[in-house]
Nucleic acid binder design. Structure first.
Length: 766
DNA sequence: TAGGGAATATTTTTT
DNA sequence: ATATTCCCTA
């Protein structure tokens, strides 16, 4: 390789940038076509690269990054490169390393969220957090949401926590802190009380020293807006900013970028409006359409030559996407043999679909095709199941990319919760998760007591537990168990300071009784869970500190270790973006499933176009061959559902496709459904909104944010105001007289209940 | 407090 | 079909 750039790990010596040295045109540039090369070389000023599927977008991005380093226009630490997924970030990292000849350290290369956390950790105190804040996962978020709803006395049946969480996420997507939500956007959740709930939720997060995913960016925005000096630092720092998948950015990400780019204005965004598939998550295609307006003087470069797919495949994709309106419009072209036509297969049911796909895969394999070059792309996660079952019986190796992630499994989350408490003892959500897992006799009554005390004194659950074990407040049995647990945590915390992380985890699993619990569990999946825990320990060996490990867990939720031998890939269409395979199977092309009924119901025409783009993404993943299929009927929960072929099937250009459906199903064109007889219960999509039926139960529960956020409403007296001899009243034990005071612990001789030790906030002056 | 059994929801898509 | 939640009893 040419000149190793020797930039690794260098920090800029304050102001002076590395000087651009004259160099011969490097070899990597000659491997690009004209448009690609232009996109790489236009390093200065705002640039939008409209890159169709398979046009070498990633290559441009990585080459550009390497080029900037090569010309010494900036140090690695002055380059911000943002991707959408961790996978893309890793890929970019390794490809840049390949171009440069060695690993490049110090780049700000990662997802929006990981770059966001990095900034947020440095300035956490500016938004009322400590730098060690916890990143909540979806479970925690929901649990917290339920608590907030509970505190506000809102009927969770009628206003599900999920719905509130979704609403809040959407606000955060748009960069709206609670104070910024206008009445127009207040939504109708709980009769308009959602904003107050949002505020309460944020307040709870702050007390817990925690942030949810949306906060990672939202807090950055707040910091930038409120602290011009901080913002200015970053604006100076980031000489070059590169953004992948720009069409999928939401408002909050857009604002984040725009603020950061104001310094040097060297912002390069790569995207494809036809691949915008995250509208439901707040992504705004508008961002890409508006780029030239937002960044005056921006250049636009189009990449239209496709290097991936055969003309038949590309023609199919183009023909389909042409049904969308409001596109920027690109004309993709490719060279080479037409290749096979895209085949369309109608089948009887999902089982047959899986069987036939399985046969085809085996046949391809016999012809010498690698399994890893085949993928089944599904609309919804549950669709992988039928294929998994089938492959299991056929013995076809396969992997599910982006399914139920490793870190989302229950046993892993439990283990993590233990670690979180060790790491940060006021992580109430983690503590609550594991106080009684495995069962140790600490039931909800005990937890409730802990909560009361914690809230009354504004302390953490763990602190409340510490306080309570010294009293008679709890049942002796519970108290003993709790004390045991607290001792364990003390011990583990010490251990965590000395032992390697992996050893700590093993110790915790052992001493907490978690391993034992699983060993005694007769459930068929217990051995698997134990294996998973072993894997967790193994994963921990790769990271130094508990802090790093927990961060890894919360941000790198993907388990798509794309490696792992020769296996068929099972992927959702959403997580397939950015991947490519020789052979692609697209099952489940039925109305209601794809396009998905729920998308149609909630998003109307706009959502239909997004579904179509999803189909476009699916088709353009393939290099050589595509097999699309639809089933006449599908198992749904307990019953069956009859389906008609997706409208997308009809939209495929006849020239490039071939319908090889079995005769007698729907007929070759995919028209009219033959009534299939009595054994089928025709069930219209069961996914419709189900809110309406509670409509009249519209009680008004005057929710008052203060009642929840203002700390300790009615609690007795501040610590220290009780003295010996005072008469008091206790909820459970009745009247009594204080015989001793020790900090906030009172020893009380009760009239009826004898002498007990009690925390002062549980009593009131008589 | 735990465990059983009934009732109930679950299936979009993800950082 | 399966997972979660709720309610009851021991």
């Amino acid at each position: 390789m040419a000149d190793p750039f020797d930039l690794s790990g260098l920090e800029p010596p304050t102001e002076s940038a590395p000087s651009a040295g004259p160099k011969a045109a490097p070899a990597y540039l000659s491997r690009l076509n004209e448009a690609q090369r232009a996109a790489v070389e236009a390093t200065e000023g705002p640039l939008l690269v409209l890159a169709g599927a398979g046009t070498g977008k990633t290559r441009v991005l990585t080459t550009r990054l390497a080029h900037i380093l090569r010309l010494r226009l900036a140090w690695p630490s002055q380059i911000l490169a943002v991707t959408f997924t961790n996978r893309a970030a890793r890929e970019m990292q390794s490809r840049v390393a390949a171009l440069i000849g060695e690993a490049v350290d110090g780049l700000w290369l990662g997802t929006f969220h990981s770059n966001g956390v990095r900034i947020l950790r440095r300035h956490a105190e500016l938004v009322g957090l400590r730098p060690s804040f916890t990143i909540l996962d979806v479970d925690d978020q929901l649990r917290l949401m339920k608590q907030v709803l509970g505190a506000a006395n809102i009927d969770e049946k009628r206003w599900p926590a999920r719905a509130l969480a979704a609403q809040i996420d959407r606000w955060k997507d748009r960069g709206l802190a609670p104070g910024r939500v206008g009445t127009a956007q207040a939504g109708d959740f709980a009769d308009g009380r959602a904003v107050a709930l949002y505020a309460a939720y944020q307040e709870r997060l702050r007390t817990l020293n925690a942030a949810d995913f949306g906060d990672l960016l939202l807090h950055c925005l707040t910091i930038f807006t409120d602290n011009p000096d901080v913002l200015s630092d970053y604006q100076q720092r980031f000489k070059y900013i590169l953004v992948d998948e720009y069409q999928d950015t939401n408002v909050s990400q857009y604002l984040w970028l725009r603020l950061l780019a104001q310094g040097h204005k060297n912002l390069c965004c790569v995207g494809d409006d036809d691949q915008s598939i995250y509208g439901w998550r707040g992504a705004e295609v508008g961002n890409i359409l508006r780029f030239e307006k937002d960044f005056p003087g921006a250049s636009v470069i189009r990449l239209e030559r496709n290097y991936r797919s055969t003309p038949n495949i590309l023609g199919t994709a183009s023909g389909l996407i042409a049904h969308n309106e409001g596109r920027l419009g690109k004309t993709l072209w490719t060279e080479g043999e037409d290749g096979q036509k895209v085949t369309i297969h109608g089948v009887w049911d999902g089982e047959e679909e899986a069987r036939v796909v399985g046969e085809e895969i085996e046949s391809l394999q016999r012809q010498g095709h690698a399994l890893a070059e085949m993928a089944i792309l599904v609309r919804a996660g549950f669709q992988t199941r039928e294929f998994e079952d089938r492959f299991l019986t056929l013995g076809i190796p396969h992997r599910v990319i982006g399914g139920v992630g490793f870190y989302e499994r229950r046993e892993i989350r439990d283990a993590i919760a233990y670690l979180r408490v060790i790491h940060q003892d006021d992580d109430d959500l983690a503590f609550e998760r594991i106080v009684n897992v495995p069962k140790r006799g600490i039931g909800q009554a005990t937890v409730k007591t802990l909560h009361e005390l914690a809230r009354a004194q504004g302390i953490s659950l763990l602190a409340a537990a510490h306080a309570l074990v010294g009293t008679d407040e709890l049942r002796p049995q519970s108290r003993g168990a709790l004390r045991g647990l607290l001792d364990c945590f003390d011990r583990w915390r010490t251990a965590a300071a000395d032992l390697p992380l992996a050893d700590v985890i093993e110790l915790v699993l052992e001493e907490s009784g978690y391993t034992e619990m699983l060993q005694n569990d007769r459930a068929p999946d217990s051995p698997g869970r134990l294996d998973n825990l072993k894997e967790l320990v193994a994963a921990a060996e790769e990271l130094e500190t508990l802090t790093a490990f927990l961060e890894h867990v919360s941000l790198i939720m993907d388990n798509d270790r794309a490696a792992g031998g020769d296996a068929v890939n099972l992927v959702t269409l959403h997580s397939a973006k950015g991947l490519e395979f020789d052979s692609v199977f697209l099952p489940g092309w039925e109305e209601g499933l794809f396009p998905h009924q729920r998308a149609l119901d909630e998003g109307g025409a706009k959502a239909l176009e997004e579904e179509r783009r999803l189909a476009y993404v699916g088709i353009t993943r393939a290099r050589q061959r595509i097999r699309i299929s639809y089933a006449a009927s599908r198992r749904l929960f307990t019953g069956w559902q009859s389906n008609i072929p997706s409208r997308f099937v009809d939209e495929l250009p006849a020239k490039h496709v071939e319908n090889v459906s079995e005769p007698g199903l729907y007929g070759a064109q995919g028209v009219g459904l033959e009534d299939s007889g009595a054994e089928f219960i025709v069930q219209r999509p069961a996914f419709g909104p189900r809110r309406g039926r509670y409509a009249r139960h519209a009680a008004s529960n005057g929710f008052d944010a203060e009642a929840h956020t203002g700390q300790h409403p009615t609690q007795a007296k501040p610590s220290g105001s009780y003295t010996r001899g005072m008469r008091i009243f206790h909820q459970k034990f009745g009247y009594g007289r204080i015989v001793a005071v020790e900090d906030n612990r009172l020893e009380i001789a009760f009239d009826k209940a004898g002498t007990k030790k009690v925390i002062d906030s549980f009593v009131a002056p008589a």
